[in-house]
């Protein structure tokens, strides 16, 4: 599964650490998701989408 978290993060000028703190996860988790090494739970996916104010499909692309 691909995702565009890095793009949205760049648009908001957010570091991985800052995003991780907002979502109450570790920075390594954000890094792992961005690199496609870890697929987040549905709950975390919703949190990410809501944080950026978009739908889940805008961020996560199922291949």
């Amino acid at each position: 599964m691909k995702n565009r978290i890095k793009v949205y993060r760049a648009m908001r000028d957010l570091t991985q650490e800052a995003l991780a703190q907002e979502l109450k996860v570790t920075r390594q988790t954000i890094l792992a998701i961005e690199k496609g090494k870890y697929d987040p739970s549905l709950e975390l996916a919703f949190k990410i989408a809501r944080f950026f104010g978009v739908s889940i499909e805008d961020i996560f692309l199922y291949e």
Binding site: T15, Q16, R27, Q28, L31, A32, E34, K35, K37
Partner: peptide, 10 residues
């Protein structure tokens, strides 16, 4: 496997 020790790309 789940990127515990991956380096930061920032």
């Amino acid at each position: 496997k789940y990127g515990e020790w991956d380096t930061d790309e920032e």
